[in-house]
Computed example of a mutant assay.
Amino acid sequence: MIPDRFWLTDAQFAKIAPHLPTDTRDKARVDDRRVISGIVHVLKSGGRWIDAPSEYGPRKTLYNRYVRWAAKGVWVNLFHALAQAGGPPPQLLIDSSAVKAHRSASGG
């Protein structure tokens, strides 16, 4: 594994594994841990799906899994389950008065 890549640890994957869908329609699904790690890597880096490192598997698999699980609500359910388990709150608000910039900060 390359150190600058994101990989879920055993403990992290153990927390989310019970919340993943199991309906695979009699087909063996590729490694969930690898695919989810790839999805998180792409989302964290802000890159395009096509630029995902090959260590995570086929880029189309990453994209398809992300989109299909989003349509099914898997991500929302997973985030709510993790939030109820003592993780970060499901929604964070930032007060705009805490982030100020000088009026000349917008120009060059």
Rank of each mutant, 00 (worst) to 15 (best):
V74S: 09
P21E: 09
R5L: 11
Q12G: 12
K15F: 03
D26T: 08
S45Q: 06
A14N: 05
P89C: 05
G107I: 01
S54H: 14
N64H: 05
W69E: 13
P88Y: 04
L93Y: 07
V67D: 14
H80Y: 09
A71C: 05
N64C: 05
G46V: 00
D31I: 05
R33G: 07
V35Q: 00
D51Y: 07
R59C: 11
T22W: 00
L43Y: 02
R5S: 09
L43A: 11
G73K: 09
K100I: 03
W69D: 15
D4P: 09
Q91D: 13
I36T: 12
F13W: 04
R25P: 02
A17H: 02
R25E: 10
L82C: 13
V74D: 14
S104W: 12
K44M: 11
W75S: 01
G107Y: 08
I36D: 01
H80F: 13
Q91S: 07
P90C: 03
A71S: 10
M1A: 02
T24D: 09
R34I: 11
Y56G: 06
P90F: 10
K72H: 14
R48N: 13
I36S: 08
D23W: 08
A98G: 00
R103N: 04
S104P: 00
P53A: 02
Y63L: 14
P89W: 14
D26Q: 12
P58Q: 08
P53Q: 00
V40D: 02
I94L: 11
S106T: 03
R65T: 11
L8H: 08
T24V: 00
I39Y: 00
A14M: 05
T9P: 04
R48F: 03
S97F: 00
F13E: 03
P90L: 14
P53H: 06
A81C: 04
T24Q: 06
Y56F: 14
G47A: 00
R103A: 15
W49C: 01
T61R: 07
D10S: 15
D26L: 02
K100L: 05
P88L: 13
I50L: 01
M1L: 11
R48K: 13
D31Q: 06
Y66A: 12
E55V: 02
V76E: 13
P18M: 08
L20Q: 10
P89R: 12
G86I: 07
D10P: 02
Q84R: 15
V74E: 08
L8S: 01
P18G: 03
S54G: 06
R59G: 15
A81P: 07
R65C: 01
S37C: 08
L62I: 00
G73F: 02
V42A: 08
G47C: 02
V76Y: 09
S106V: 03
L20S: 06
W49Y: 07
A83S: 15
S97L: 05
